[in-house]
Amino acid sequence: MVTSTRDNATRMRSGLLFALASATSFSLSGPLARGLMNAGWSSASVVAVRVLLAGIVLLPLALPQLRGNWNMVRANAKLIIAYGLVAVAGTQLAYFNAVAHMTVGAALLIEYTAPVAVVGWMWARHRQRPGVATIIGAALGILGLLLVLDVLSGLSTDPVGIAWALTAMFGGAAYFVLSAHGGELPGTVLAAGGLLIGGVTLLLAGAAGIVPLHATTEPVVFAGFHTPWWVPVLVIGIVTAAIAYVTGIAATRRLGSRLASFIALTEVLAALLFAWALLGEAPRPIQLLGGTLILLGVITVRLGEPETIALGDPEAQTAADDITAAHPDSPNHQR
């Protein structure tokens, strides 16, 4: 029992570190993408190159983990395809269409309510009724988002834009739910396969005229310095996609969809800091207050989560069950 408790505590700590690493990595994509778009890139081109490069980078790492066991890929084919089409390509396409009809801040606000959708899914699908701490944490997180994104002065009411933003929100929620599945499938394999499928889908969407695809080789200008175009492209592909998705999957499999989705809200605060450093966009006091509320919301949700994985997210437990089945002598096997 003591060993099991220690294992759960270790798993929780590593999950928190993976979640923060993922959120921080994802947050760097905004400022880098802004620099590329200012240099003449379309947003769809940035995302397509980003996810394709990440998939290519992860492929040499993913293949050895399979050890020739392609049956594992076939068994999880639906998960990989859903991850690529919904969590990667679908979410990005929906977001781009949303910002075409409403302000960026309003679209982001709706998309980042994904944790609420995750809570609703866990309640409906797994009968996990949210506790008081989860409800309070959700309220603090949403209030913090309102302040960080500074959309209180007026939200777009365009029904088409709202519909696309809601689609992006459900795509974001699907990212956390799908990441918790496939415990026997290495996270690197899921990420590589999903990113490649998502990238190809975005290219096809561009070819079909759904999103514009164009890029330049002009130098990219940031606050106080400029750099060749390929430098931010490499960083946005390797750091903000390859590393971000792999650590995000690892975090969700350890923490569960619900807690991982709330920790991901720290991405907004980290994005503010990176925008300050790279673009000279200093955050306003009200945005810093919003970031503080987001962190308080995450802490509140964490305090309301079960202490053991066994009592936590059933989807996160999948990975633990697979490990236990593979190692029957482990302490967790006698649950």
Rank of each mutant, 00 (worst) to 15 (best):
Ile197Ala: 08
Ile197Val: 14
Ile197Asn: 08
Gly198Tyr: 14
Gly198Ser: 13
Gly198Cys: 13
Val200Phe: 13
Val200Cys: 11
Thr201Val: 01
Leu202His: 05
Leu202Thr: 08
Leu202Lys: 06
Leu203Val: 09
Leu203Glu: 06
Leu203Gln: 02
Leu204Ser: 05
Leu204Cys: 08
Leu204Ala: 13
Leu204Ile: 15
Leu204Arg: 04
Ala205Pro: 06
Ala205Tyr: 05
Ala205Met: 00
Gly206Thr: 01
Gly206Met: 00
Gly206Asp: 12
Gly206Trp: 04
Ala207Phe: 09
Ala208Asp: 08
Ala208Glu: 04
Gly209Ala: 07
Ile210Thr: 09
Ile210Pro: 02
Ile210Phe: 08
Val211Thr: 14
Val211Arg: 11
Val211Asp: 10
Pro212His: 04
Pro212Arg: 01
Pro212Tyr: 05
Leu213Ile: 15
Leu213Trp: 08
Leu213Glu: 10
Leu213Met: 10
His214Gly: 09
His214Asp: 12
His214Asn: 11
Ala215Arg: 00
Thr216Leu: 02
Thr216Ile: 00
Thr216Phe: 03
Thr216Val: 01
Thr217Ile: 11
Thr217Asp: 13
Thr217Tyr: 07
Thr217His: 12
Glu218Phe: 10
Glu218Met: 11
Pro219Trp: 14
Pro219Thr: 13
Val220Phe: 12
Val220Ile: 09
Val220Asn: 10
Val220Tyr: 12
Val221Asp: 11
Val221Met: 09
Val221Phe: 07
Val221Arg: 13
Val221Cys: 04
Phe222Tyr: 15
Phe222Met: 02
Ala223Ser: 15
Ala223Ile: 01
Gly224Tyr: 11
Gly224Trp: 09
Phe225Ser: 00
Phe225Leu: 01
His226Val: 04
His226Ala: 14
Thr227His: 05
Thr227Asn: 00
Thr227Ile: 00
Thr227Cys: 01
Pro228Trp: 11
Pro228Cys: 02
Pro228Asn: 06
Pro228Asp: 01
Trp229Ile: 11
Trp229Gly: 09
Trp230Glu: 05
Trp230Leu: 14
Val231Tyr: 10
Val231Glu: 12
Pro232Ser: 12
Pro232Glu: 05
Pro232Cys: 12
Pro232Asp: 02
Leu234Thr: 04
Leu234Val: 14
Val235Ile: 15
Val235Gln: 05
Ile236Leu: 14
Ile236Ser: 12
Ile236Trp: 07
Ile236Cys: 06
Ile236Thr: 11
Ile238Glu: 08
Ile238Val: 15
Ile238Asn: 07
Val239Pro: 07
Val239Ser: 08
Val239Asn: 05
Val239Asp: 07
Thr240Leu: 06
Thr240Lys: 06
Thr240Ala: 15
